[in-house]
Amino acid sequence: MIELYVLLGLMIAGAVIAIEVKNLLSAVIAVGIVGLALSIIFLLLKAPDVALTQIVVEIVAVILLIRATLHREIALKSCGTRPFGAFMGILFLGLAVVAAIVTFNSLAPFGAPLMTVSQFYPMNAITGTGAINVVSSIILDYRAYDTLGEATVLFTAVIGVLTVMRSVGKKKEEDVQENHE
């Protein structure tokens, strides 16, 4: 599994570059490195459906972020750091990483998952739903309400974005009445 460690190291390097580089456009491209390496990791971990979704989502997210940073004067604006926030962040995140390393010892080791709950799905996917892809049998049959909720969140977010980005504000009532007269 050496390639997994190489890709994880690439992701961490890309994340550090994205956070620390001055030029905002370069930072957005570095996040693209992180997301595409993540989709290759998903392929290595035998999750092809997740990898396909990750590629599509990553490209759309990078396009949106480029749209936000495309102006000439925006991209070169230097970004400062809040010194107190940086100090406290490094202190407590270091503590959190140490605590997490201790906590991981109670998890099942990497490569040996607990299958107590999810043993049911591969056993019954074909006889229960007729789908040969177990993941699609879960998202479209066993947990279809989950997917419905996901679609609801997606449309709510689209409506929110349209509301925030609407260029023309709501007209005042007097103006509307004047226009009618």
């Binding site: 957005v28 809040r82 997490a100």
Partner: peptide, 29 residues
């Protein structure tokens, strides 16, 4: 547990950016 630890470090980098950066695009990243 090494992959879990590297994953936790990546998460910490993201949270550090949220806590310490002043630029709103960096916070989104």
């Amino acid at each position: 547990y090494m992959p879990y630890v590297l994953c936790m470090i990546l998460f910490s980098i993201g949270v550090y950016a949220i806590l310490a950066k002043r630029n709103i695009i960096k916070i989104i990243l």
